[in-house]
């Protein structure tokens, strides 16, 4: 498959450059419909505050999907991820304005496996805090 990154050009320690990803309310509404997760805390300010949240928060799976984009864009193929796991550590509030929330994601190759696969350790921060822990993707390279 057409990965842009060649396995032989990647070493343990190779970095995927940091990128910013912006999430707005509209994106969450689109994600509700596309994913089928209509939990009110992802679109209804009143309901989110009622359960003690600061406001509407992003789906954890939206954050997980965003971190995957860092890897699939790097590899050049959304089909390149063969294993992907995360732990969700803190919520990402998405304010009702034109700016939304900004995630900062980066990655580093921590292992080279057989069959041209590599393990990428992902770091995703919001407001300086990690929002994903133990976030690792195994990626099929060319």
């Amino acid at each position: 498959m057409p990965a842009i990154i060649d396995y032989d050009d990647v070493e343990v320690g190779t970095r995927i450059p940091e990128r910013e990803f912006r999430i707005r309310r509209e994106d969450l509404v689109r994600y509700c419909g596309a994913s089928g997760d209509f939990n009110v805390i992802h679109w209804n300010e009143r309901a989110a505050r009622d359960v003690g949240l600061p406001g509407v928060i992003a789906h954890g799976m939206y954050t997980m999907a965003t971190a995957a984009r860092l890897v699939t864009d790097w590899a050049g193929d959304p089909g390149s991820v063969v294993d992907y796991s995360v732990r969700f550590s803190s919520p990402v509030p998405v304010p009702d304005d034109d700016t939304g929330a900004t995630l900062v994601a980066s990655g580093v190759v921590e292992k080279k496996l057989e069959d041209n696969q590599v393990v990428v350790n992902l770091t995703v921060r919001f407001d300086g805090s990690k929002v994903l822990l133990a976030s690792r993707a195994t990626v099929q390279l060319a």
Partner: peptide, 23 residues
């Protein structure tokens, strides 16, 4: 729709010809 929601613009998720060209 799912790719658009997560702002993933990969042609392989949007453009049938691109996906086929990639195998």
């Amino acid at each position: 729709q799912f790719a658009a929601a997560i702002q993933d613009n990969s042609p392989l998720s949007h453009d049938l010809e691109a996906a086929k060209a990639a195998g």
